[in-house]
Design a protein around this nucleic acid. Structure first.
Lengths: 328, 328
DNA sequence: ATGAAAGCGCTAACAG
DNA sequence: CTGTTAGCGCTTTCAT
């Protein structure tokens, strides 16, 4: 309802309109400190009347609070930032942070030296969202920063975790393969150092152990190229493999390519399944069987947790469900 | 070289160390206003000595400059933000903006009412990068904001443009199809309202006109689903089509799926080509022939242009080159 | 060319 | 519960 061409209302304008002091107005608006019910009402309606929006720069200055969220991706090289999964996450974060009037930055955190403290004592940084984090990186979070760091992946006492139930999702995929009669199932895993790739591997071990199947495990790096390479290795070492489970969809696409190169029919000769259910999964030839990964919701929740200093954020696991298509 | 556990140096510390006043130090550091050579040297070395970094919040407050870059994507619905192309762009922007200590926000701009002014008088916004913009949206940029708005796509006198040479890239792809003997080439275009999809269509018209080929043009919306649908339409209307050119790779993947459904061999019966050279282009069956689109470089250049208020940014066109694979 | 002084808009003691 | 006062760190007139 504010006249369009006027100068932005300041706190002082609100206070004047409400007939209170700046301090009272500030207390009401920021929700910290006491205020009478009447003062509260009058300030709130003045805010609405004037279309007042607090100046974030001024707030940052006095609170030393920072005005951007950093997505810190742990990895062995800066190329981890090229991953479509990371891209989706950044877009989701930038969208989720929009209403808070804070921006998002993207940064590679070297696995060998995940120096989080340097990032956290940067006054421009309001919070950090960790990706693919390791125990070492989590241990490097000083307790003074509790609540300003969250993790998409494993967490710690200090750092709440927001993650997909990739153990459950992987189990669902593997069970599907098993029920379809597959008995010589290979898995292309992620890098061994990556904690978030562990639960799917555990799900795989659980299945092969309990069903008495052979273990056929090869490491990849989440990329399609590595899926292709690793699947080549699988076919060399265990030519009678009848299913390949990729740690993610990109890996599975690489598997499809390798099987095509080798002249194997999918799913007739070899079934293939992935994880994530990215857009292209419905378009590959054959369309990819996989499990869902609600990246957007997870990231949005994590970003809001780090931005909402109010409630202490608590960890949360997001379900993953099987998506049956043609490849398995 | 600064001791790690000390409080961040302020401008006052620098001034003291350099033996000058805060004003002089400020002038030297921000590079505006006069300063003697000696003062300059002393301030610069004090900065280095103390590891001084200006407090962006304080700067924002006094300069009213803003501390985030908004990527504004024009489209008919908020789902335009789901596009992988947009995701890559956001990630690239967040990376490019990192050293400037500013974050990135992502926002949908309704095609019907691209209200840019609301965004530009938001004090938290340092600059805006437009995506898929229309002439109407560009006309809505007040001249007061010259230099604070750049466009990935078409530009205007007020708004510099950074874009791939998609006309040239499309021409290269089409020429490749023609040289391979294709004479009944269909194109799946983008939405008619989208200016950035026009030049490839012009390239298509140029080829069919000059070579006397039939015009087979169907609209899509950049999605794989639309590519699949549109290719179905093409096959219905012109069953003897021997090539399909998609406005982007996603569209081309949809075309591959449609042709598979229809039992056509690619490239034997029908050649398929796309545009963008995204990661999966090398993995589809068959691998997709396409043209490059250096999104990361384009976005990084645009973001730096909007952040570097110094030089008036000038428009720039980035080359696109043919990538021959198996589908055409 | 340089320094003193006055804010940018907000929050947080501290009295009342 | 409320108002007064003093800054947060920086830039920028305005004298000198």
């Amino acid at each position: 309802m504010r006249a369009p061409q006027e100068r932005q209302a300041r706190l002082e304008d609100v206070a004047k309109a409400a007939g209170v002091s700046r301090s009272t107005a500030s207390r009401v608006i920021s929700g910290s400190g006491p205020a009478s019910a009447t003062a509260r009402d009058r300030v709130h309606s003045a805010v609405r009347m004037l279309g007042y929006r607090p100046d974030q720069a001024a707030r940052s200055l006095v609170n030393r609070s920072g005005f951007r969220v950093v997505l810190a991706v742990v990895g062995t090289s800066a190329r981890v930032l090229d991953d479509p999964y990371v891209h989706r996450a950044v877009a989701a974060a930038a969208t989720a942070a929009m209403p808070y009037e804070v921006g998002v930055s993207l940064r590679w955190l070297p696995r060998d030296a995940p120096r989080l403290d340097r990032m956290l004592d940067d006054r421009t940084v309001r919070g950090v969202v960790l990706f693919n984090t390791t125990e070492a990186a989590l241990d490097g979070v000083p307790s003074a920063f509790r609540g300003r760091v969250v993790s998409i992946g494993i967490g710690s006492r200090m750092v709440p975790s927001f993650d997909v139930d990739n153990g459950g999702g992987a189990a669902a995929v593997l069970e599907h393969l098993y029920r379809a009669g597959r008995r010589r199932i290979a898995m292309v895993a992620g890098p061994a150092w990556m904690p978030c790739a562990r639960r799917p591997v555990e799900a795989y071990r659980d299945l092969v152990n309990s069903a008495g199947l052979p273990v056929r495990l090869v490491a990849g790096d989440f990329s399609a190229a590595s899926g292709r390479r690793a699947t080549g290795t699988v076919l060399d070492r265990w030519p009678d493999t009848d299913a390949v489970f990729g740690i993610n969809d990109a890996t599975a696409f690489g598997a499809l390519a390798a099987l095509r190169d080798a002249g194997r029919q999918v799913p007739a000769d070899v079934a293939v399944a992935g994880f994530d259910d990215i857009g292209y999964a419905a378009l590959s030839a054959p369309a990819l069987t996989t499990a869902t990964h609600p990246v957007e919701r997870i990231v949005a929740t994590a970003v809001e947790a780090v931005l909402t200093q109010g409630g202490v954020p608590s960890s949360r696991v997001f379900p993953s469900t099987l998506v049956r298509r043609d490849s398995a």
